[in-house]
Design a protein around this nucleic acid. Structure first.
Lengths: 231, 231
DNA sequence: CCTCTTCTGGATCATCTGCTCCACAACGGG
DNA sequence: CCCGTTGTGGAGCAGATGATCCAGAAGAGG
């Protein structure tokens, strides 16, 4: 009904959806819109700014995305999926140390991508920016991030059961700490911290968190307060 | 010129600034405005919303604060001063462990104040929300937070010189990590994390960071991965 | 009393907001 | 070729926006 031709209408061989073809790339437009929302927030981005940046007319925008709110929602979800993918890939690592390393370091890489025009994390910005607009992006993003945290907590629990972490470890608290670091890195990136600074902080945190490193060589423990592994 | 009667005009004994007195409390209005900006962001808060919430007319608002942008700026600075005050008080502590504990735990208390209507950190929200509006709040907030970080880094350097931290400690990296945790706690608060969760994460981080605790009893080290001191 | 100064509400300004309408253009199928 | 379908640009809608103006009110000083 409201969704124009999201998927091919079954009768067609998916080659062309019928009617006049769209004159712009929908994914490109979505990316450009995300960038604008990122920089100016939802309310700070007008439909005029969007149509101008995307090089399309207002009617084209509404035909393709429905409304400004839905466009925003779609942009946020697109980026949220990236962050979830990082968590998903990370928890698949065999050792818990590698899991934590990948969650933090891979996320820093994502936050610092230069081909995107803006550092940081769109979902964090989105959540901070607009609370009670037409659209409840805040709740949706919060839910998404809770699921990322749950995945991580489950992985920590497994590590405890496997004896990889001491039995006294509280998985919920450890997961909360890692998520706190994650959000902190996103904010620092947004504030202009360099990749090197962020990776340095992340690696220090990882060194402090890694029980194997500390257990293996307690004498070298104080070195954990240096930036960490040289690599 | 543009600033009406910010300070008493010198000739008066500061009792009354002359002219018709203001019918509302300027600080109360500023607080109420800050809350609105917090919830809806700068662009998401209209002057109508402000005048309605503050119970004053548009002309009164403009007479008292100059413009919507200046009101926003003043609100952000007011809150930023609170966070700076926490850092200032913390670095005055004699032991570095107490310094870090106070920076993180006191900030969590601040983020979770219930008498304010919104959890989290206004400056973080402000930075995330609006980048290139009329007013460059972003740069100002970033500068403020850089000064907080510099203060903390200087305190860490002193702790290293005092032998309280191992000589291999990199003060810049340690300060960056603490600031990362700080921003992370702010974001988690904004996302709805409870005070207990935040304090738990903060205390775990502190336990991992505390070299005295680990050096004193390396055997008990794994316990550091539990929530931390019961108190 | 008057004057000077400042604040107040209400009306009002020009502009911008998100969004819709419409005539028409670009495709595939018959 | 016409048909149905879908996208397109431009004009334009009603309402909201940030900000200003003004007549008057409320104080201090003379």
């Amino acid at each position: 009904m409201t969704t124009p031709p999201a998927a091919a209408p079954a009768g067609r061989p998916a080659g062309r959806p019928a009617g006049r073809p769209r004159a712009f790339d929908r994914d490109d437009a979505l990316r450009a819109a995300a960038l604008l929302f990122w920089r100016h927030g939802f309310s700070g981005t007008s439909t005029r700014m969007l149509t101008e940046a995307l090089g399309i007319s207002s009617s084209s925008l509404y035909a393709a995305f429905g409304s400004k709110a839905r466009l925003f929602d779609e942009a946020v979800r697109t980026y949220a999926r990236r962050y979830s993918a990082i968590h998903e890939a990370a928890v698949a690592e065999p050792s818990i140390a590698r899991v934590l390393e990948r969650v933090l370091v891979d996320s820093v890489e994502e936050f610092c991508r230069v081909e995107e025009g803006h550092p940081g994390c769109l979902t964090s910005s989105a959540v901070m920016a607009d609370a009670s607009t037409t659209l409840d992006v805040r709740a949706h993003v919060a839910a998404l991030q809770r699921s990322d945290e749950a995945r991580l907590r489950a992985r920590v629990e497994r590590a405890v059961l496997d004896g990889e972490l001491p039995a006294s470890t509280d998985p919920a608290v450890l997961a909360e700490l890692v998520q706190t670091l994650w959000h902190g890195l996103a904010t620092r990136a947004e504030l202009g911290a360099s990749r090197a600074e962020l990776v340095g902080a992340a690696r220090l945190a990882l060194a402090l968190l890694d029980p194997a490193g500390r257990a293996a060589d307690p004498a070298a423990d104080p070195a954990a307060l240096s930036p960490g592994r040289p690599g």
